[in-house]
Design a protein around this nucleic acid. Structure first.
Lengths: 139, 139
DNA sequence: CTGTATGCAAAACCTTTGCATTGTT
DNA sequence: AACAATGCAAAGGTTTTGCATACAG
């Protein structure tokens, strides 16, 4: 196979014990090149060779999510969205309730909150936080 | 119809221009008596007279949500959950990733965050924030 | 060669819609 | 009487599963 996908993605797969396949590299490429999280259907329609089945796409997304390669997001739209997962660039979003545009926001859940939950006995604490509002163009 | 439902709920329906029906009062009762948000299926199975159709239940939940009588929550489970909505008792949750128990948490998104979005041009700002972790019993 | 990944078809699951009927006001 | 609410049946949209085949390591 020609090396037309970033080395990063190949390594990411290897590091997680996943076999290197065209489908997987394409999915990672599509998600990696998007600046906002994509739905399965959007990913599907952006796959260059159109040789991937929906079932395979969902299996792939599930695995990637389990391996923390991608992050599954939920904006209560009736389906999920997927974005690259990286600790360093962890961020949240505002979704315009008018035009549905999705933008990153520069703030995260205060650390005290999760500390407080730790004190309550919780471990492995994760969070989700998203904002919704009418953007300036839609007002 | 016998008055076996709280006056509050009857009023809530009236205030929103919704007709008083057994289905609606039962749904409000079920949601009102639960200390954690319920899925449509859970609500359905708790309805006392079992005389409500799923279609009606969903229509009812949609209306209640639109009228801000109930709040639709999404914990990325593949379905929604519904809880009573009241401004004064607005709160968020921790969901145990083991036993799926849902508890309220006593903190909310910092006000500065939404102010910052307002400055960015957003209006009518809402937020979602939920926590996930292993609770002490599941560790 | 071994086990994983894939495609295809079918099903599962949650939710919505159309329409004729019933119930509330 | 007028209009909203309901039940039933069917469909829609997203995601999962079973199974035989193809592919990566």
């Amino acid at each position: 196979m020609k090396k037309e996908h970033s080395h990063n993605h190949t390594d990411a797969l290897k590091d997680n014990g996943l076999k290197i396949t065209k489908n997987r590299l394409e999915v990672l490429d599509v998600i990696g090149h998007s600046d906002s999280p994509l739905s399965a259907e959007e990913i599907f329609s952006k796959l260059p060779t159109n040789s991937c089945d929906r079932a395979t796409l969902f299996r792939t997304l599930k695995q990637f999510t389990e391996h923390n390669l991608v992050e599954m997001l939920d904006f209560s739209e009736g389906f999920h969205r997927y974005g690259m997962h990286c600790e360093e660039h962890h961020h949240h979003h505002v979704i315009c309730t008018g035009c549905k545009k999705i933008e990153p926001v520069p703030f995260c859940v205060p650390k005290e909150y999760e500390l407080s939950l730790k004190r309550r006995g919780y471990s492995n604490i994760q969070h989700k936080m998203e904002f919704f509002g009418l953007c300036s163009s839609c007002t």
